[in-house]
């Protein structure tokens, strides 16, 4: 019984051609970004060649060139404190890469697909998940098919559970699709797979300073699995929260509006009100899980990977509980 209900929900998502829409968007943006990265890399090389009149370069000379450029930017009088710290951290990392013989420059397919997720995790990936989740329940209300499915001999919690499970399955699919599409499309541009390159991860920020003592070396493939697992976790959290909103409001447009306001508003809040303690308990402030691995500059003090995962897990759980409580008691007037 449950299997067939889940099958129903999956076919509704597929019939609405949502997966097609998501793949088109992914192809479009990933194509654009990997073309862009290829373009900047080519430009870096031609600039390097122009300055040094040397065509037999290797990545190390490119990396030190880039480090010098970063140092130059530090001297700029217009730079603000946040940017300063972020650049200092980047220089420290670059030093570490050169000392330890890790190539941070040459683009590869595996590197791109990791970079893409690191950048997309706070906005682009949540958006894809919102496309999936926002009308899952509210859609049944807006086209009034809710009356048809709630008058069969199936308890309401089963109807909702099948929807949630279908959502989890499709969310997982989307994360896998991001991995596959970003690897293949970027390979088309870079012609390098790079799955076995070494990666340094586990940089820590202690009082705003980069600490390389806890760094461990893994290969790109392992790192990719790690980053995609984090992206998957974030996606599940976004899916659960959107799912709840979809249960609470009757119109899909309102559901999308509300979750988008949270996402965008949340990014604003973390930027402007970073001193305010309570902001770090808001789910949007905790979406960027991957930054804890790369040692990027953090706006809010006192947050860690463990903390963010806990916050997201609690938000997801509470969302699911609210969804079930509300849905099973709701009076259907639509």
């Amino acid at each position: 019984m449950m299997n067939q209900l889940i099958q129903n929900e999956v076919s509704k998502i597929l019939l609405k051609k949502k997966m097609v829409l998501i793949s088109v968007l992914l192809f479009l943006f990933i194509g654009l970004f990997s073309y862009g990265e290829k373009y900047t890399y080519d430009k870096t090389i031609s600039r390097f060649e122009k300055i040094t009149e040397d065509t037999s370069y290797d990545w190390k000379s490119l990396a030190s060139q880039q480090m010098m450029e970063l140092e130059k930017r530090l001297e700029s009088p217009y730079i603000h404190e946040m940017g300063l710290k972020s650049i200092e951290i980047q220089i420290e990392q670059m030093k570490y890469f050169i000392e330890n013989n890790i190539n941070p420059i040459t683009p590869s397919s595996a590197r791109f697909s990791v970079d893409f997720v690191e950048n997309a995790i706070i906005m682009f990936i949540p958006l894809m998940i919102i496309i999936l989740a926002s009308d899952l329940v509210s859609g049944e209300f807006s086209n009034r098919t809710i009356k048809v499915i709630l008058t069969r001999s199936v308890p309401r919690w089963k109807v909702l559970l099948s929807k949630y499970i279908a959502l989890l399955m499709m969310t997982t699919m989307v994360v896998l699709m991001i991995g596959a599409i970003s690897s293949f499309v970027s390979f088309f541009f870079f012609r390098v797979w790079g799955f076995y390159e070494p990666v340094a991860t586990g940089f820590k920020l202690i009082n705003g300073e980069l600490d390389a003592n806890s760094v461990i070396m893994v290969n790109r493939m392992e790192y990719m699995v790690l980053i995609y697992s984090l992206a998957w976790f974030v996606s599940i959290a976004i899916a659960s929260i959107t799912f709840m909103i979809s249960v609470l409001v009757k119109s899909t447009a309102a559901a999308i509006g509300i979750i988008m306001a949270f996402l965008i508003g949340g990014q604003f809040l973390q930027f402007f009100l970073s001193d305010w303690e309570i902001i770090k308990y808001f789910f949007v402030s905790n979406l960027n899980l991957t930054k804890y691995l790369t040692g990027a500059y953090q706006q809010i003090e006192g947050m860690s990977m463990k903390f963010s995962i806990m916050v997201l897990a609690i938000w997801s759980l509470v969302s699911i509980v609210i969804s079930f409580v509300v849905f099973t008691r709701k009076d259907v007037l639509a």
Binding site: Q4, L5, Q7, N8, S11, K12, L15, K16, N143, R144, T145, K147, V148, I149, R152, S153, V154
Partner: peptide, 19 residues
């Protein structure tokens, strides 16, 4: 009210699974 994006048959099949 039915799922407009699906065929009549698919609609009935989906509801059939619910009994």
């Amino acid at each position: 009210d039915l799922y407009n994006y699906a065929t009549g048959m698919k609609n009935l099949e989906m509801l059939g699974y619910m009994s």
